[in-house]
Write a protein that binds this DNA or RNA. Structure first.
Lengths: 259, 259
DNA sequence: ATGCGTGTTGCCCATGGCGCAACATTATGC
DNA sequence: GCATAATGTTGCGCCATGGGCAACACGCAT
């Protein structure tokens, strides 16, 4: 995220600055007025007034009087409206709940967002091991089943843009080169689903399939996840077919899964 | 939420307007530029430019070209940073996961927000029936265990301000008068926990206890919930004691659960 | 083909956003 | 305990930006 915003048609500079503050706080956790002013290259009185507006609406809050600021719960309220409207329009939760019951694991929906995976809805399965809140989390594309599904059908320049900055080994089976990833994505296109078997985290397994828009393009990914002790390689193809079937029910929705 | 913003020291009018747009879209689902302009009492070119800034940052998106707007997934990303930081600072998820395992039901944390209950974190239990995403949802105070906990220890004018606008019967046991609610809240203060037994929804039961700040004031509520077929009246007191014990572990955290 | 409504954008000007300076408060070092 | 430094806030005045107007492009209904 660039700190200086190049003026473009129709944008409002002070609104852009206020949103940049939210993005800085999302990355840093907490910041003071002086630090925010430095990041935005504005005077600290400017930063103080922008923070004041965000504070008044609950989008930021002060950690202590005359101290540092952090993101506020007003954002949780607004995000709740987003996830509710995802369901209102697509009816996705009926499908995701049925899938969670059928396979007994956590189910999520994710989209591609700034070349990373963003989890936008979640239904948890009965497992204790998978008690984890993915909603709102952002993860890399190369080591997640959702990321593979969201990128496999992109053109090559776009697939390359979505690759990680570094190929560190995050888990026993992390893909660590562009070549290996291209072969993996070719297989995803052939099978119609993706698997991540202990690639982002040890013991963590996910199976994902594409949710397509009316133009048959991949708009989102439907994914089930759980521990390796329960999701074994011999089951991957049957699970893949099940997830594909559920994702197909969510595909073809006009005016929804658009980026 | 008033549409006209009375200028106050340190606030930035165009930022206030942009946030007001987000709040309108949260309430309405979708809106057009002309409608937003009318709500804000500004020219539609002003509304169009404000929307353009929000669009550029992903806080809104267009449902279709030259059409209506809705809240964007950028808010889900920002909210994810909020719920992650709740855990980072308070370590609440270790406690909420342990509680979910212990009682086998869904666990949530909620705060009082604009005289309503706002769910800010969630761990789901093993039950299929309780598969429901509360995160970001806002519900009334009088018919929820969390709402009773969040309001019981307020002074009387604040308790009255938190009452619903109407006393409609939402479920078999909905409280339908201020007098009955006052008696209920007195009992909550005495027991140290609250129960909602089929009050907001049929078959839905919740047991909540207060999370207190360093000043011993109620900052948030910890709640377990599930269906009436599993959570029976004879169990309420033991469940209440268990939730109180878990809430106590989350209490006394400086600089966190502040409103 | 025409009329209507919506959303966008160039232009210009009035105003609101901003930087400066001063101040209050808190934290830090000695 | 005191002096200094750093942070955040706020009054003031200026000017750069936000915003209204008008014109335009587009989609839809008739």
């Amino acid at each position: 995220m660039g700190n200086t915003h190049i003026a473009e048609s129709g944008s409002v500079q002070s609104v852009d600055r206020a949103i940049a503050i939210l993005e800085i706080l999302a990355q840093r956790g907490e910041s003071g007025v002086t630090q925010i002013a430095a990041d935005l290259a504005v005077h600290k009185s400017t930063a103080s007034r922008l923070m004041s507006s965000l504070l008044a609406h609950g989008l930021v809050e002060q950690v202590s009087d005359r101290g540092r600021y952090r993101l506020g719960l007003g954002l949780v309220r607004l995000a709740g409206a987003v996830t509710s409207s995802l369901d209102v329009v697509s009816g996705s939760r009926a499908v995701t709940r049925a899938l969670a019951i059928q396979v007994g694991e956590t189910v999520n929906i994710a989209v591609l967002d700034n070349n990373r995976v963003l989890y936008v809805d979640q239904v948890m399965g009965p497992s204790m091991v998978s008690m984890r809140s993915w909603l709102g989390q952002s993860v890399p594309t190369h080591c997640t089943a959702t990321g593979k599904v969201l990128t496999a059908w992109l053109d090559k320049p776009s697939r390359i843009a979505a690759r990680p900055d570094s190929w560190g080994k995050l888990a026993p089976n992390t893909i660590t080169s562009g070549e290996a990833l291209e072969k993996e994505l070719a297989q995803v296109r052939e099978l119609g689903y993706a698997v991540a078997y202990q690639e982002m985290e040890a013991d963590f397994v996910a199976v994902a399939a594409p949710i397509r828009d009316v133009h048959d393009e991949v708009a989102a990914a439907l994914v089930i996840s759980g521990p390796a002790s329960r999701l074994k390689p011999k089951d991957f193809d049957s699970l893949g077919q099940i997830v594909k079937a559920s994702a197909a029910k969510l595909s073809g929705n006009p005016n929804y899964w658009r980026e």
